[in-house]
Simulated scan of single mutants.
Amino acid sequence: MRSKIIIAALAAALTGSAAYAEETTLTISSYGGQYQADQAKAYFQPFMARNPDIKIIEDSSTSNAKLKAMVETGNVTLDLMLTDDSFGLDSDAQWLEPIDYTIVDRSKFIEGAAGNYRVASDIEGTVLAYNEQEFGDNPPKGFADFFDTEKFPGARTLWKYAASGIFEAALIADGVKPEELYPIDVERALKKLDTIKSDIIWWETGSQAEQNLASGEAAMGLVWIGRAANIADKGIKVDWTNWTSQAGYWVVPKGTKNKEAAMKAIQFFTEPEQQVEFAKLMPYGPSNKNAKIPEDSKFKGLLPTDHLDTRILMDSEWWAKNGAAVDLRFQEWLLQ
């Protein structure tokens, strides 16, 4: 009898050890701050509740360079990372695991949101925001008006970054059709930017963009939608006639030991229920085309995905190949 008890106890102990050993720890790196806190509410916590055998550890030091170094040294400590439009392209294949579309449903995403090595977490945008008090019943509408300083006088605030959408905005204002933007005619874009150069207040952080508009120093600007939404109560309005589309993307580092769990997480994070929950917290649209935002949602109307018919979809592959050269020319122009 005693031997049976001992055997049963050993069996229970071994079963418990096996269950413990099978628990997966998924390390996810994102942008930190309120953005990541809202991701935790909408994505991470519900995922762990649904998958008790997977524990998520959060990291907020997301860095393309860090990921590359991990892969190159064989010391991969991240399983899933959020990145921007500049990374996760086919040209970055050496550092990334292909998205496993037997786990992730590729058909559920809006155009441009699902690539070979990345999947959009949310759809963001750079929009034309303006001070309502400056223009009253005659606000600017679209990039052409943004460049029209006679009809719409006042300072403009722009991101001091070549791949921010300012080249696309300048060309659209100059009459180029969205489908004919690429390859970017750099000199034509800079010539158009010359027409407002003396009216530009450059920003390099989102908080600077907010301050420039909220203080009245700038009458209008091309700013991130999240920043425009932050100061809506200060009389800042958004025009959606033209806007450039960006996104946050999930990528999986090559060599992760938890590839299947990472793909499972991507699939869950991009399901309609989770996408809607995140859009209730942040003014970023869902990458899942089946996610329906309630009409009474706080950011309904301010989500980029409410205005997909007017978006300018930036060509990330083109910028990846040409960005360095364009930026060099941009820096020269800034000094002229």
Rank of each mutant, 00 (worst) to 15 (best):
S3M: 08
I5E: 12
I6Y: 05
A12I: 15
A12W: 12
T15M: 11
A19G: 08
E22R: 12
T24D: 05
S29C: 09
Q36D: 03
Q45W: 08
R50G: 13
N51M: 08
P52N: 07
D59M: 03
N75R: 09
T83L: 09
A93Y: 03
A93D: 02
A93G: 01
W95Y: 14
Y101I: 04
Y101G: 01
V104I: 06
K108F: 08
E124A: 15
G125D: 00
G125S: 12
A129P: 00
Y130V: 11
D148V: 03
D148C: 05
K151A: 14
G154T: 10
R156H: 05
A162T: 11
E168Q: 12
A170E: 00
A170I: 03
L171S: 07
A173M: 03
K177S: 11
P178L: 10
P178M: 11
L181G: 05
P183L: 03
I184E: 02
I184K: 04
D185C: 04
D185V: 03
L193D: 05
I201F: 15
G206D: 04
Q211A: 14
G221R: 00
I225H: 06
R227P: 01
A232R: 15
G235R: 02
K237R: 13
D239V: 07
D239G: 10
N242I: 01
W243E: 04
Q246H: 13
A247K: 15
A247G: 12
W250L: 05
G255Y: 04
A261N: 05
A262C: 09
I266K: 02
Q267Y: 08
T270M: 03
Q274Y: 00
Q274I: 01
A279W: 06
L281V: 07
G285I: 03
G285K: 07
N288I: 08
N288H: 09
K289G: 14
N290Q: 06
K292V: 15
P294K: 09
P294Y: 10
S297M: 10
L308V: 06
D309V: 01
T310Q: 01
R311W: 08
L313F: 10
D315Y: 08
W319Q: 07
K321G: 13
K321E: 14
Q331L: 14
L335H: 13
